[in-house]
Design a protein around this nucleic acid. Structure first.
Lengths: 354, 354
DNA sequence: GGATACTCTCGAATCGATTCGAGAGGACCG
DNA sequence: CGGTCCTCTCGAATCGATTCGAGAGTATCC
């Protein structure tokens, strides 16, 4: 058939061999005479055949070679945070050598103002799916994937039956950070949290939402604080881990008669925002207020300040997720991985003004 | 067959209809009695059938519903730049409603220190491919895609036969920016460029590389400068659009006996780095040195400075790329799109110290 | 020379769906 | 009551590859 792109059958007949032999010439999965293989390749070259069609191959093998990464409502929002990007980078570089590609799938699509599960979630080819930023049972994403029989790996919990989890010791890390500030002598803490459940606005956290944090990272870090015995005088919940959100939160916390002497933010970008807010309010850091974050990002524009933070191994986390994907594809259910974090004291924390 | 996941055939027999009827019940592409459809769906529900297997469907239709986005060598590097992320966001939100997913494909893989074309490029299923950051004929990516017969859309040129191009009027924008600085009275310009060809280190640009800029955005912006009659006294080429690179470039340009009075950077992140370098060297902006960028990013941490820049419609560019993809999938070759840019004067440019 | 072993090639089945033309059955009309 | 039309369902072919067992042909050894 000269119409359309050539198929293996075309190549086979041009080379004067059977289709099965031609297949062998490309896959190498079976005995074939070097001369025959060369003849097939030669024919392929002549016809402009660029190798077996992945669609046919996938159907036969039942594998698409695609791993879906489910992203939040807006790509922009997910990826403006270097944290996600670094994890994704580790993931891609682990999956690549395995011949696996990463498909970006939005969790929801908004049609006429109504958010629904993205059709890709239900219909795109995928051998496994990754939820980098935790899963909430409520939102149906997990259910949709499990109905399809797609194995799932989630970053940062929660632990759900049949789901592989890769996370960091953020509870322990937060506790360590809190103790660092306690040792410096702080007693009045402000806290800036990541979204506790479905994102909304940046404002003082309500007791109801604090009582039931659906989002694993926020929950763990809250627990870490409690572990260290810290009870913040004021807690602001943000709508996402962005500098602007942190700045808004910082203003809420610091632009009051008796501001806290230390502000803990659940992410570095939020902490950076708090720092900006402090600067705008004429507060010196750390003399007037200490600020600490979480993540261990390298933010060159913060120079000469160096943020005190809890560093998590982001790239390695992505790689661990990649390995977990490899395992679920092999039919195993990987054990939960919790990666270590480390306190990194910078220049933004110090003793409170007495 | 009770082994493995149920197929359409299983559902059909459970519902007591033929496979073709069952197919109709899901696709709706043909007449079917409502009652029959309901019976099929009921059987599907009972068997835990989550809808037609995309692999089978793809093979039949010849369409995978996947658009590859080819990214640079490191994901981290590509996505640390908000520019790419915003374009990608526009792309994803245009492609989503069309039922198309975005597959991230690295251009190269490094095995044992040797960079090769990533196997996914040659083997992953895709209906079309997008090169967000321009294409160079040299690197083989384009050739590999064209050999496969995959239609390609590139962002930011160059214009190649059979390839759709979406870009911005960066040449015109740069010229406008240059004239703004000329009008302010500047005569000694420093220039910080994006990589001119294959990325390497941040250092003073060699005449050879300046003479033959392979990378379209860098080339256009160089041309724009020339259009305005500006000839920089010193040009530094960077290894990529990152704050650190800009900072290094800024030090090279400004830490000299007679520094330029205005520094033009080919991207906002580079300009931000130059700003940092200036600050570190004790130079006031814009009193001692004016700094301008390109892109129109919203960088909250630059406050209270507002960068003078040329704003390009990043999200809209992604959407335009998405529409171009739609067209190439329909078999058309879209005309080259050049989107308008606009000069946005901030607080980082002013008259030179006389 | 004949049996055995080995190497390579081939035909046919299979993966899971879609699609087209054919035909069964019922409704309607004259 | 017979014919026509319409609605719905079905069987079979098809998409492009992989894989397995069978078999042809040649080499090896006694």
């Amino acid at each position: 058939m000269s119409q359309g792109r050539p198929t293996l059958a075309d190549v086979a007949s041009a080379a004067g061999v059977s289709v099965s032999t031609a297949s062998l010439a490309f896959s190498g999965a079976g005995p074939i005479a070097p001369e025959t293989r060369e003849r097939v390749h030669e024919a392929a070259r002549r016809l402009g055949y660029a190798g077996p069609n992945p669609l046919g191959r996938s159907l036969r093998s039942g594998r698409s070679g695609i791993v879906a990464v489910v992203i939040g409502d807006q790509l922009r929002r997910s990826f403006r945070d270097p944290v996600s990007v670094q994890v994704l980078d580790g993931l891609v570089s682990t999956l690549g050598p395995l011949g696996l590609g990463v498909l970006l799938v939005p969790a929801h699509t908004t049609t006429d103002g109504v958010a629904e599960l993205d059709p890709l979630l239900e219909a795109a080819p995928m051998d496994a799916a990754v939820l980098i930023w935790g899963a909430r049972e409520e939102d149906g994403v997990l259910a949709a994937l499990q109905r399809r029989g797609v194995p799932v790996v989630v970053g940062e919990g929660p632990e759900l039956p049949g789901v592989a989890v890769v996370g960091v010791e953020d509870r322990i890390g937060t506790a360590e950070l809190a103790r660092h500030l306690l040792e410096l002598g702080h007693t009045r803490f402000g806290l800036v949290t990541l979204p506790l459940s479905h994102p909304r606005r940046t404002e003082v956290a309500t007791p109801e939402r604090l009582a039931r944090p659906e989002w694993a990272p926020a929950r763990h870090r809250l627990q870490g604080l409690a572990d260290a015995g810290v009870e913040p005088v004021m807690i602001v919940e943000t709508a996402g881990s962005l500098v602007e959100e942190g700045r808004a939160a910082g203003r809420l916390l610091l632009d009051v008669p008796e501001p806290p002497t230390a502000v803990l933010a659940q992410s570095d970008l939020l902490a950076a925002g708090v720092l900006l807010a402090a600067r705008e309010l004429g507060l010196r850091v750390p003399e007037d207020v200490s600020v600490a974050g979480f993540d261990g990002l390298d933010l060159p524009w913060m120079a000469p300040d160096v943020l005190t933070t809890v560093a998590q191994p982001l790239g390695a986390k992505g790689e661990a997720i990649g390995r977990a994907v490899e395992q679920v594809l092999a039919g195993e259910l990987p054990a939960t991985v919790r990666m270590p974090v480390s306190l990194r004291v910078g220049t933004t924390t110090g003793p409170p003004r007495s």
